[in-house]
């Protein structure tokens, strides 16, 4: 459905996108993951025809976006990084305008109402966008991308500015859209792509550094395990005992404490589960474990891991 071949976009000597190629099949949900300034937005802007590329091609539904922008744009619903809202309009007026500009053929009332229901903005339909909160504006932006039921939907950081409950709702919405749309979304939050996408493309400094199924990336990320464990007991001795557990590569104090208990950060070898030995070791000494949590990796660490793996 989407095909990008050797896409390059440079501003003088600065390469915003540097030889990026990938394909997205029909009904796939693909996550575009990368830090700020990695080239996610630029790629999406090129794909939607807002920017042109320096070289390379971008096709949507087999139609080249530069050669036949008019037809290609009909297939795309796009939510840019900053939702393109006319703040002097009410939500309903705005969606009506989008409906007109996209030359939509569906039943106007029914279609727009459906979209408002799905994005949960029906209750604010008569309010000026100017007066809406960031979360509502974001959802109006999402609603705008859905008008006309385009087969390809592109979301640039769709959950920015939403509260946790709304984030979950939007993720569910994206998952349900994936059933009969092709969805590409960008984010810099790892857990977001893990929970929504079938496939993850990691991009950094304009280059794709990984393009894999979500499970594979999750596996790569989970191989090194770290835990924060809160233990009630004499600090120095606990440190010594923890360090002696087979599989533990390092122990350090995180600095958090509660009365006589401290939080220790454990790093463990790949493929070794230290949780049971940890429990028995502490039980033997009569030091109760008050808390144990696995610590996820942040995006930078994921990059290091993925690039390391790519190097091997």
């Amino acid at each position: 459905m989407i095909e990008i071949n050797h896409l390059v976009k440079n501003y003088g000597s600065k390469f915003a996108v540097d030889d990026v190629s990938f394909k997205v099949g029909e009904g796939e949900i693909v996550g575009f993951l990368g830090p700020n300034g990695a080239g996610k937005s630029t790629t999406m802007n090129i794909l939607t025809g807002y920017l042109s590329s320096t070289s390379g091609e971008a096709k949507v539904g087999g139609i080249d976006i530069l050669e036949n922008p008019y037809e290609a744009k009909k297939l795309i619903g796009f939510l840019p990084e900053q939702p393109p809202l006319y703040i002097d309009m009410t939500v309903q007026e705005y969606l009506n305008f989008v409906y007109d500009i996209k030359a939509c053929k569906l039943n106007r009332e029914k279609h727009l109402e459906e979209i408002r229901k799905v994005t949960k903005i029906d209750d604010v339909k008569n309010r000026l966008i100017r007066n809406l909160s960031k979360g509502y504006r974001q959802r109006v932006g999402i609603a705008q991308a859905l008008v006309g039921n385009p087969p390809v939907i592109i979301f640039d950081e769709p959950t920015v500015g939403l509260d946790p409950k709304q984030i979950i709702e939007i993720r569910n919405l994206i998952r349900s859209l994936g059933k009969n749309h092709t969805v590409v979304l960008s984010t810099h939050i790892l857990s977001e792509v893990q929970s929504v996408c079938d496939r993850i493309i990691i991009i950094n400094e304009g280059k794709i550094i990984a393009d894999e199924k979500t499970e594979n990336i999750t596996q790569a990320v989970d191989q090194n395990r770290r835990y924060n464990v809160k233990i009630s007991g004499p600090q120095r001795e606990v440190l010594a005992v923890l360090g002696a557990i087979p599989g533990v590569t390092s122990v350090e104090l995180t600095g958090e404490r509660e009365l006589d208990s401290y939080v220790y950060r454990l790093e463990t070898e790949r493929g070794v589960d230290v949780r049971k030995p940890l429990f028995y070791a502490m039980a033997e000494k009569n030091w109760p474990i008050l808390g144990l949590e696995a610590v996820g990796m942040n995006l930078e660490e994921v990059f290091v891991r993925i690039t390391e793996r790519a190097g091997n």
């Binding site: 802007n45 939607t48 025809g49 807002y50 922008p69 008019y70 037809e71 744009k73 009909k74 795309i76 796009f78 840019p80 900053q82 393109p84 809202l85 006319y86 703040i87 989008v98 500009i101 996209k102 030359a103 705008q144």
Partner: peptide
């Protein structure tokens, strides 16, 4: 206001 992004990614020449 970046609304031009909507216009330029819509099927309008």
């Amino acid at each position: 206001t970046r609304t031009e992004q909507l216009l330029m990614t819509s099927p309008v020449t």
